[in-house]
Write a protein that binds this DNA or RNA. Structure first.
Length: 414
RNA sequence: GGACAGGUGGGUGAGCUGGCUGAAACCACAUCCCUGCUAAGGAUGCGUACUGGCAACGGUACCGAGGGUUCGAAUCCCUCCCUGUCCGCCA
């Protein structure tokens, strides 16, 4: 959520920055108006409440002195009536304000480039050079079918489209990759955590999936619970409504989880293979930091994911997302895209974002600095999407005879 | 899922025959004093959010959540959520 006080005081600045994300200024104007109106309305209400409290305190005194209380009672009744009226007004404004505020995206950093969509993202650097194949490299789904590694048809039978079943080498590689990634991240100082895959509404609100993106989530009927779209949700919400100690920070975590996404709006995209599934495995990094630590930790997370790819000898590039492509809660995002020789393209395999205090404000994650409570910064990033890593290995390590070589570092995990 | 017992500040835990309780006491924590050594004693401070004020210091709300009764609720009533114990079920 936006800092509404900041919006009140630096309206022009924030409006300008949010233009980068394609947000209309009218929305911000209305938000500011609501915020100020609510403040005034609250002051009115509180004055009445103060009066009520003061008068109510007279009752025991009157009783003691055996004075008549009926007049006082009548007075209070009138005050009460106006309180109810003003209270309703406050409630109405609060609801309206919340609806507005929760739907406004985070403010992009200054270094985030202008742009509309992924076309305008900026490549920062490339790591490793794609190798030349002496034959025509195949796409992962072709390889998977020939090797009997992935059963697409039966996945659909079990659930629906965009579900599949990993078998044989794919199943083993998937498991090896998860273990390897967790170990790798742990060595980099991220402590391993194992979280629930189902969370409640408050958690989804805390990290910003709700209220705006309900359509992207799998909801459990009659339970008011949701399947997580990423381990970022439970990991970040671990500290929701908590006040941390300063010396606990930064908290660096890594977790493997299955992720569930409805993929609303991506009909027709990546329908072949397992690039875009409703359920996929991911090893996630989440950090909770002091504000002044978050840039450094951000770099550390990007480096961790990139080094992980390098350790698997997978060519990739780093891309800075432009304003239009930036996610709802992020101030800055770097995507890692891995080279897929079968497709002849770089494809997203990791996304590292700094949300600064955006999630922290929603989720009320603070820490004590001296006597003051300050909002923390929260960061998240994949390290890595496991299914896509599997694809990358299949396509990059394929051999002329149709078999897949095994990356050196994974050998001890198989 | 059924029965009973509970949910109070960082923790333990009073209050729960309605007003003197935003909340005792103890512990933890912070600062200071004393003392001098592996420990003790004393003083003060110590919830959160919003809000007024340069500040000192005030105001409002919050005792699981949401409603209700009342001039007034942590305290009474209702609904929901959660925890514990026992039973049932189960990896």
């Amino acid at each position: 959520m936006l800092d509404l006080k900041l919006l009140q005081n630096n309206f022009e600045d924030i409006a300008k920055k949010l233009r980068k994300k394609g947000l209309k200024e009218d929305v911000l104007k209305e938000l500011k108006r609501l915020f100020i109106t609510l403040k005034e309305q609250r002051a009115k209400l509180e004055a009445l409440q103060a009066k009520k409290n003061e008068k109510s305190k007279l009752f025991p005194i009157y009783k003691k002195e055996q004075k008549d209380i009926s007049k006082l009672k009548k007075e209070l009744d009138e005050i009460k009536e106006s309180i109810i009226f003003e209270q309703n007004e406050v409630n109405r404004l609060e609801k309206e304000l919340e609806e507005y505020a929760l739907n406004i995206p985070n403010i992009p950093d200054d270094e985030v480039p202008e742009g509309k969509d992924e076309e305008d993202n900026i490549e920062i650097k490339r790591v490793l050079t794609p190798k030349e194949f002496s034959f025509e490299p195949k796409e992962h789904w072709e390889l998977a079918q020939e090797l009997d590694w992935i059963d697409f048809k039966r996945g659909v039978k079990l659930a629906k489209s965009r579900f599949s079943v990993l078998k044989n080498g794919a199943a083993k590689l998937e498991r090896a990759l998860i273990n390897y990634m967790l170990d790798f991240n742990t060595k980099r100082g991220f402590s391993e955590v194992c979280v629930p895959y189902i969370v409640n509404k408050d958690s989804m609100l805390g990290t910003g999936q709700l209220p705006k993106f309900e359509d992207d989530l799998f909801k459990i009927e009659d339970e008011k619970l949701y399947l997580i779209p990423t381990a970022e949700v439970p990991l970040t919400n671990l500290y929701r409504d908590e006040i941390l100690k300063e010396d606990e920070l930064p908290i660096l975590m890594t977790s493997y989880s299955a992720c569930f996404r409805k993929e609303a709006g991506s009909a027709g995209r990546d329908t072949r293979g397992i690039i875009r599934q409703h359920q996929f495995d991911k090893v996630e990094l989440v950090s909770i930091t002091k504000p002044e630590q978050s840039d450094e930790v951000f770099d550390k997370m990007v480096e961790c994911a990139s080094d992980l790819l390098t350790s698997l000898a997978l060519p990739h590039r780093l891309v800075m997302l432009c304003g239009g492509d930036l996610g709802f809660g992020a101030t800055k995002t770097i995507d890692l895209e891995v080279w897929l020789p079968g497709q002849g393209k770089y494809r997203e395999i990791s996304s590292v974002s700094n949300t600064r205090d955006f999630q922290a404000r929603r989720a009320k994650i603070r820490y004590k600095e001296g006597k003051k409570n300050r909002l923390v910064h929260t960061l998240n990033g994949s390290s890595l999407a496991v299914g896509r890593t599997l694809i990358a290995i299949m396509e990059n390590y394929q051999q002329e005879d149709g078999t897949i070589a095994i990356p050196e570092v994974l050998k001890e995990y198989l």
